Amino acid sequence: MAARPYLLPDDPGAPFPPASQALREPDGLLAVGGDLSPGRLLAAYRGGIFPWYSRDQPILWWSPDPRMVFRTDAVHLSSRLRRELRRSRWCIRADTAFDAVLAACAETPRPGQRGTWITPEMRLAYARLHRLGHAHSVEVLDGDGQLVGGIYGVAIGRMFFGESMFSAQPGGSKVALAALARQLDGWGWPLLDAQVENPHLYTLGGETWPRARFLESVEKLVGQRGRDGSWTAAFGTLQASTLTVATAC
Rank of each mutant, 00 (worst) to 15 (best):
G133A: 08
V148P: 03
F214G: 02
A155R: 09
R131H: 08
L204R: 11
L192T: 04
A97T: 10
G188Q: 12
V196G: 01
A181V: 11
S173E: 10
R158C: 09
V222E: 06
G186A: 14
A135G: 03
L238R: 09
N198T: 08
A194I: 05
D228V: 15
G172R: 13
S137T: 03
F160D: 05
K220N: 13
L141W: 15
L102Y: 00
F166S: 00
V222P: 05
G157K: 10
A178Q: 11
V175P: 10
A127P: 01
A125E: 05
E197R: 05
V138M: 03
E216T: 14
L180E: 13
L177D: 12
Y202L: 10
L238K: 03
S137C: 08
A181C: 14
P190Q: 05
F166W: 04
R123Y: 04
D193K: 06
G153W: 11
L141Y: 07
E163R: 05
A176W: 01
V218L: 14
G188W: 12
A176P: 09
D228W: 09
A212E: 14
F166Y: 02
Y152F: 14
A125W: 02
L191C: 02
W117R: 08
G133I: 06
K220G: 09
A179K: 00
M159V: 06
G143E: 08
W209A: 03
V138P: 00
V138H: 01
E197D: 13
F98S: 04
G171N: 03
G188R: 08
R123D: 00
L184R: 01
R114Q: 12
D185A: 15
F98Q: 03
A127K: 05
G226D: 14
Q183N: 12
M159F: 10
L215R: 01
